[in-house]
């Protein structure tokens, strides 16, 4: 029993980070149709900047706030200075721009903050807790708690606020949204800021567990993308479910099958899901406009 619980807890922790990354993908995809390959770098900026600033002696909460704001700024700059200027370009070209941005941001981080790993102290100590035979560090609770709150807030934002509905409207039909008076360019900008902030929070949450480095965004970004697709691209609830499912599947695979092939298990899972549900777990079957 304790082994299963342990796998579940570990899986949900990493799954929560995947879910935050997946939500970031979903937001930008919904607003612009672009898969943002720089999403992983937002995670990296969040983790690195928090670690660097708190290393300079800033209190943790301030470091975190500044890091998230910094990432959001980078997200907005990416939208305004790069993607917005290539409006009307084929989507693939936009995707390549985000790949370029991802390489650029990694290069910049490496230049500014060096290549070594940077530790970040846990938010509230390292004394492990015991729960139903599983051991968990308090940071795990931070990861899961904050992620859950963020997802909840995001859900309310979309269903209860006018701005949230403007985002949804833009996603469904940008031209119609513009006609009904929504400033879709601002909506896009907000989506980039929001998705960068989500990624950055994820990065800061995971940094005490894994340490931050300029390369940390690479794998987390890919996994986030996988989670977003698994859940059904463009569906927020799907992104969360996809992230958690992926995290748990990986840990279970490492525990029961083969730790060497746990990533392969994750990708094989994708095949199975897509084979039976070509639009992901929660994706609607969209009818194609001809």
């Amino acid at each position: 029993m304790s082994a299963e619980m342990q796998f579940l807890v570990s899986g949900l922790t990493i799954g929560a980070i995947y879910a935050l990354a997946a939500l970031g993908f979903t937001l930008i995809y919904n607003a612009s149709g672009v898969i943002n390959f720089a999403q992983g770098e937002f995670i990296m900026i969040g983790g690195m900047l928090t670690a660097v600033l708190s290393g300079l002696g800033l209190p943790l909460w301030l470091a975190l706030v500044l890091a998230v704001a910094g990432a959001a700024l980078v997200g907005m700059l990416l939208q305004r200075l790069a993607l917005d200027r290539a409006r009307g370009a084929p989507v693939v070209s936009l995707v390549i721009i985000t790949i370029g941005a991802s390489i650029f941001l990694r290069g910049l981080a490496q230049l500014l903050w060096g290549k070594q790993f940077r530790p970040l102290p846990a938010f509230s100590g390292e004394q492990p807790l015991h729960l139903l035979g599983a051991t968990l560090v308090p940071q795990t609770l931070w990861v899961m708690g904050v992620s859950a709150l963020l997802m909840l807030a995001l859900g309310l934002f979309f269903s209860r606020t006018l701005s949230g509905k403007a985002v949804l409207a833009t996603a469904i039909n940008a031209a119609a949204a513009r006609l009904s008076g929504i400033d879709t360019r601002s909506v896009l900008l907000a989506c980039f800021a929001l998705s960068a902030a989500l990624g950055a929070i994820g990065g800061a949450l995971i940094a005490p567990i894994t340490a931050a480095s300029y390369e940390m965004g690479l794998m987390l970004g890919i996994k986030g993308f996988v989670a977003a697709v698994l859940g059904g691209l463009g569906v927020s609830a799907g992104a969360v479910a996809g992230g958690l499912l992926l995290g748990v599947a990986e840990t279970l695979a490492a525990g029961y099958l083969s730790s060497a092939y746990k990533d392969a298990v994750a990708f094989a899972l994708i095949f199975v899901v897509l084979f039976f549900l070509p639009n992901g777990l929660f994706g609607q079957r969209a009818s194609e406009r001809v």
């Binding site: 290539a86 084929p90 721009i97 790949i99 941005a101 991802s102 390489i103 290069g107």
Partner: peptide, 18 residues
Amino acid sequence: EMLVFGLILMVSMIVLPQ
């Protein structure tokens, strides 16, 4: 190197999106 490489990639796609 990475910085410049990423920048070239971005700029060329922005200037010549096709």
